[in-house]
Write a protein that binds this DNA or RNA. Structure first.
Length: 128
DNA sequence: CCGTTGACGGCGA
DNA sequence: ATCGCCGCCAACG
């Protein structure tokens, strides 16, 4: 298992119940800012093997974008989110800013991110 | 070896 | 708003 894969798993497990994080957000928190695509690819690859709240990782446009896989379906993802109080529309979109995971600076520091980088991420994701 | 393809996303035109 | 391009990189044919 690569370091990146480990980091993705580690970050995803810290996304709280009832909140969501975009693929790009997870990538940013692992320290590889533009690896959103790899986050999706990684989650798809480890499903069924490693326990991770995969349903809390979503498209930054506020849309459920997974495809049918061996284990998961968009409908299952919608139900998992609704079980946590996230209102998902019939067309699989939702208000991402309402539910977005917004870690504290302390928590981001615990991920070994330096302050300048954290400042950048805050500008990107802390706005409501 | 090489082009294409993803559970993606930011930016410029 | 919408589109194309590119970064990222493993897997597949």
């Amino acid at each position: 298992m690569s370091e990146f894969t480990d980091a993705v798993i580690y970050i995803c497990r810290q996304v709280p119940f009832g909140t969501v994080a975009s693929y790009g957000q997870v990538a940013a928190y692992t320290g590889v800012a533009r690896a959103a695509r790899q986050v999706g690819w990684t989650l798809n690859r480890i499903e069924g093997e490693i326990e991770v709240p995969w349903w809390r990782i979503v498209n930054n446009a506020g849309r459920i974008s997974i495809k049918n896989t061996e284990f998961n379906t968009p409908l299952l993802m919608k139900q998992m989110l609704e079980n946590e109080g996230v209102e998902v529309r019939p067309d699989y979109t939702f208000d991402i800013e309402k539910y977005r995971f917004r870690p504290s600076v302390e928590q981001m520091r615990s991920w070994q991110l330096d302050d300048a980088y954290i400042e950048l991420i805050c500008m990107k994701y802390l706005i409501q």
